[in-house]
Simulated scan of single mutants.
Amino acid sequence: MDYYRFWQLLLDEISVAPKNGERRIVTFHDPRHYAGVLSEWRSLKSKRAGLKQVQVSTLIRAFVMPAAGAARLLDRFAESLNVEEDLRIQIHSIPGERVGTAVLPWGVKAIHAPQAWTRSTGVQVRIGVIDTGADYRHPDLKHSLTSGVNLLHRGMLPLDDNGHGTHIAGTLSAAGGSRGMMGVAPRALIYPVKAFDHSGSAYVSDIVLGIDWCVQNKMDLINMSFGMKTRSKALHDVVQKAYRSGIAIIASSGNDGKRGGDYPARYPETIAVGATDKRQRVASFSNRGPYIDVYGPGENVPSCWLREGYKEMSGTSMATSHVTGAAALLLALRPGLTPKELKLLLRRSSVPVRLRKGQRRVSLGGGSADAQRLLRAGTRTRRATAATV
């Protein structure tokens, strides 16, 4: 393969293509071709302004580039490339009402997080939250938020212009004390990864690059409260890479109220989360089915919001942040747990859930998350393992 010609063909198309147009994810059948193309890109990018529109995921050996350029490359190098459409993906939440305060939200109490705090508060567990960013001015989050990364505007803080990411961060690890909100794991560290814009929309490539960043920066957990109906090879590849590197991905199943669910939660390497209401029933909007690993509180959940406020929201997004918080409590005690072991412990320690009246009877998968039971199960497993060594 002529690597210089590869980039010259792309630059010819970029020069006439509209900015902010459609994108494609390009991978290579032969790793040697990827290495050669990457080396040439590194030598050219400082000289050719058009190559600033190209991004790289080293984890799955992929380039993200304008669609027109990818089509031209496919015409010329079809035997060497795989080109995937860069699909849109949405956050999983239903807007609610602003509320005055949220000291100890019902969901945090429902999973028995306060009872677990005598043993663990999630201290120093690193959580990558791939979302809309976070409100760094919120007083309940000032001890929890770290710098993270802004994939939409590199070099800028991942500031939240939607609210969804701030809500997720609050449930995960708000630490406002007696005058503010408390999240599930108040001493965990949140690394906001801003991949979603103000409307709660992102591209698959943004998620790929976000997971890539989380792996490179050694997160312990990744919270992904979003999804789409279509399977993506690039997204599955990067999820598998994170799984093999020892990072558990906890993903929301979607809000269609159906048997089944969205990707990436449907990938076997993730921990798939459904939502319950205040009566420990499957929420009317929640997807359900045998692939759901665990459920969490997801209906009318109050949490942190923009401009130092609070808001109720519903969705499997909210349920996912409760489960990720519970996982952080356990990982603070058992930092060596693999994603597979964490999933098994979440399922084994869960509490049975019920269907609402009129909901179609199907296999529900796992039960409802319980942080106190999870810590007991996790430490019992450690003692049993130690006894056999």
Rank of each mutant, 00 (worst) to 15 (best):
residue 214 C to P: 11
residue 89 I to H: 03
residue 269 E to C: 04
residue 321 S to V: 04
residue 241 K to D: 08
residue 161 D to E: 09
residue 50 G to M: 06
residue 305 W to H: 05
residue 85 E to R: 01
residue 20 N to P: 10
residue 90 Q to Y: 14
residue 368 S to R: 14
residue 196 F to T: 10
residue 209 L to P: 01
residue 350 S to E: 13
residue 330 L to W: 09
residue 332 A to W: 08
residue 67 A to C: 12
residue 166 T to W: 02
residue 103 V to P: 00
residue 276 T to G: 10
residue 246 G to N: 01
residue 177 G to Y: 15
residue 278 K to I: 02
residue 38 L to R: 15
residue 48 R to I: 13
residue 305 W to F: 13
residue 377 A to P: 00
residue 15 S to R: 06
residue 333 L to G: 03
residue 34 Y to Q: 07
residue 115 Q to I: 00
residue 170 G to E: 10
residue 156 M to P: 01
residue 258 K to V: 04
residue 332 A to P: 11
residue 382 R to S: 13
residue 335 P to H: 02
residue 258 K to S: 07
residue 209 L to S: 05
residue 270 T to F: 12
residue 44 L to C: 11
residue 6 F to E: 13
residue 287 N to E: 08
residue 144 S to D: 01
residue 267 Y to S: 12
residue 270 T to Y: 00
residue 64 V to D: 03
residue 197 D to T: 11
residue 292 I to R: 01
residue 191 Y to A: 02
residue 142 K to R: 14
residue 354 R to K: 15
residue 173 S to L: 06
residue 150 N to G: 01
residue 9 L to I: 15
residue 283 A to P: 13
residue 242 A to S: 15
residue 40 E to P: 09
residue 356 R to L: 15
residue 364 L to H: 03
residue 233 K to I: 14
residue 121 T to S: 00
residue 367 G to P: 05
residue 152 L to V: 00
residue 387 A to K: 10
residue 228 M to I: 08
residue 339 P to W: 14
residue 216 Q to A: 15
residue 50 G to C: 12
residue 263 Y to Q: 10
residue 367 G to T: 08
residue 283 A to R: 15
residue 137 R to H: 09
residue 375 L to A: 03
residue 175 A to M: 03
residue 338 T to C: 07
residue 325 G to Y: 01
residue 9 L to P: 09
residue 23 R to Q: 10
residue 86 D to Y: 04
residue 259 R to F: 09
residue 217 N to A: 02
residue 158 P to I: 06
residue 208 V to C: 08
residue 55 Q to R: 14
residue 111 I to Q: 07
residue 272 A to T: 03
residue 59 L to P: 06
residue 323 V to C: 09
